[in-house]
Lab assay of single mutants.
Amino acid sequence: EPLWIRPDAPSRCTWQLGRPASESPHHHTAPAKSPKILPDILKKIGDTPMVRINKIGKKFGLKCELLAKCEFFNAGGSVKDRISLRMIEDAERDGTLKPGDTIIEPTSGNTGIGLALAAAVRGYRCIIVMPEKMSSEKVDVLRALGAEIVRTPTNARFDSPESHVGVAWRLKNEIPNSHILDQYRNASNPLAHYDTTADEILQQCDGKLDMLVASVGTGGTITGIARKLKEKCPGCRIIGVDPEGSILAEPEELNQTEQTTYEVEGIGYDFIPTVLDRTVVDKWFKSNDEEAFTFARMLIAQEGLLCGGSAGSTVAVAVKAAQELQEGQRCVVILPDSVRNYMTKFLSDRWMLQKGFLKEEDLTEKKPWWWHLRVQELGLSAPLTVLPTITCGHTIEILREKGFDQAPVVDEAGVILGMVTLGNMLSSLLAGKVQPSDQVGKVIYKQFKQIRLTDTLGRLSHILEMDHFALVVHEQIQYHSTGKSSQRQMVFGVVTAIDLLNFVAAQERDQK
């Protein structure tokens, strides 16, 4: 057995438009009618409502009807409940999964919650491996369901041993009777949507819809739904939504950006999952974080739909894509998950301010006199920076000697690579993860907040409520011999709460 199987392995699926269902090699399930009293909570997966979006479509000038398939009504709160249950049931049916076995899954959280929910009911041990950027709410729900959680670096490539995929496979090879159901490759993922989600949409719309818009992560949702719609409703256009920084969209030119990270969760990847059939997507749109969270908040405030950030991405694209539809036509959007997962993220004004998705003037509360002053007023001194090749031991000596707790790590040209902190280095040394002679590049981390000289002290204040420091950066445009230009970030300084307090105190003292 291989040590790991690539999540982007070539698909062996034989589905073709027009091929009889009787030739399918898979076990198919028909939607079942729910009894009045459910035998367990797993029976509350599927049969989610279709809700008309009344205000947002009109606000953006849509002539067509805009409908939302509300997947956050599933038992675990997301569309991923469907595939989690289906993968477990299919693994039980073919004898792969037996009582007492362990389920391991690399996930952005929602599939993990679905699997942990099913594992709690069915009696399996469950280990979820997820990147650090995923919300604390997801972690809390997983723990409450009895799952064990392993976190991995957000910026690790999918084929790196440190990625959530790599760590999951390492655990599988170490733990007896453990299984990775593997949402990236498992046919049960798109089949769950082909058999149930798509049929529900067709039934709820009486077979009449002209466009379907869905955000894409593993691709199982859009693949399964689109294949069924292509068979039953061939005139329906399928629109895929991919965040900026991901590479799922086609044509490839759409993916060209210097951005590699994004805040919206559960969609987009740096590889093409095996289950994603991009041939059934008629057109791709890219979405960005700001519009995703703005539209998610709009869905909550104006439509009462308590959905997550990827739902915002989907609707932001839908109001663009559906401009081509006329009166009497219908566009369906998939709202994948609930706001429950993001209470401390985009639902929080403070978080939105820190990330730059909300401006101070958007909030009406009274601010102190210094709130709208610029960061450049602080008069920061030149920063202490270190090269990635310097040793951890030497870096600790320098920081202690100069009285700093942290320093930016830059390359020879001064471009920011990340940050090192005294606390992080000492804990890594004590844990045996690094040696004093190791290069400081081994303990770089990139989960820090950046701020510009033109940003306000109010925004800085919000950042420092949650973080010990902020890195002050400025952009530099560099022209190359080819005539092309590129933008790079340079370090201007490091600012802490002490710097802000000293500035405010000094100004008030001078005024007296």
Rank of each mutant, 00 (worst) to 15 (best):
F492H: 12
G441R: 11
V280I: 03
E324Y: 12
D405E: 10
S461V: 14
D455S: 12
V241N: 00
T454R: 09
G393P: 10
A318D: 01
F448C: 15
D289N: 02
L417W: 08
H480P: 13
A407Q: 11
D242K: 02
Q323D: 11
E401V: 15
F503L: 14
V494H: 02
W371Q: 08
D455I: 15
G432Y: 02
D411L: 09
I498M: 14
K355Y: 12
G356T: 07
K366D: 14
G308Y: 00
Q329T: 08
D405W: 12
D362P: 10
H462E: 13
C331R: 02
M352W: 01
Q489L: 15
V440R: 02
S481H: 13
K484C: 13
G393T: 12
Q478P: 14
D242E: 06
K449P: 05
V410S: 11
E250G: 12
T364Y: 15
A413N: 13
M419N: 12
H462Y: 15
E290Q: 14
E303W: 02
V375G: 06
N502E: 13
V415Q: 12
A431F: 02
H468V: 05
Q259H: 14
S481N: 12
K449S: 08
I267K: 00
L305F: 07
L378W: 03
T391M: 14
L363R: 09
R488S: 11
D289T: 01
E365V: 12
L500T: 09
I247H: 07
E377S: 13
L430F: 14
T314W: 02
T279G: 11
Q489T: 12
V410W: 07
L276K: 04
V504I: 13
Y479F: 14
Q476I: 15
V264C: 10
A497Y: 09
L358Y: 05
V315I: 13
F285I: 15
L464V: 14
W370E: 05
S310W: 00
T421R: 12
L464T: 08
S338P: 04
L460M: 11
A506V: 08
D349K: 08
R278S: 11
H474W: 04
W369G: 09
G356Q: 09
T260Q: 13
L399P: 02
E265K: 04
A249L: 04
N255M: 04
L276G: 02
P436V: 15
I398T: 13
R374Y: 02
